[in-house]
């Protein structure tokens, strides 16, 4: 009996996409909590600078994660397995 494993790389990319999407949700939620609790906690020029820095940091993190999502999405929808395992045909077992 022969059993063919369907597109392994595509499955891997889908898993990666799910993991990155979940990460993006978690990180965004955590940074939102920082923004929410930060209001009024402290004041002064140092606090303002810090808040600006936090905004930049949140933007950078979100942008990075968005780019990661894009790469994973392309890997999932692109040619079968091309980005991950070039020249790796479906393996036959048995």
């Amino acid at each position: 009996m022969r059993m063919t494993i369907p597109d392994e790389a595509r499955t891997t990319a889908a898993g990666a996409l799910g993991a990155v999407a979940r990460t993006r949700r978690e990180v965004t939620a955590a940074l939102d909590r920082v923004a929410a609790t930060g209001a009024g906690a402290w004041d002064g020029r140092a606090a303002q600078l810090w808040a600006d820095q936090m905004r930049r940091l949140a933007a950078e993190a979100t942008a990075l994660l968005d780019r990661c999502l894009l790469v994973c999405e392309q890997a999932r929808s692109g040619p079968a397995g091309a980005p991950t395992a070039p020249g790796a045909p479906p393996r036959a077992i048995g």
Binding site: T12, A13, G15, A16, L17, A19, V20, C68, V71, C72, A75, P83, T84
Partner: peptide, 8 residues
């Protein structure tokens, strides 16, 4: 881990 899997 994810990027290593998709070659990012």
């Amino acid at each position: 881990h994810a990027l290593a899997q998709v070659g990012g």
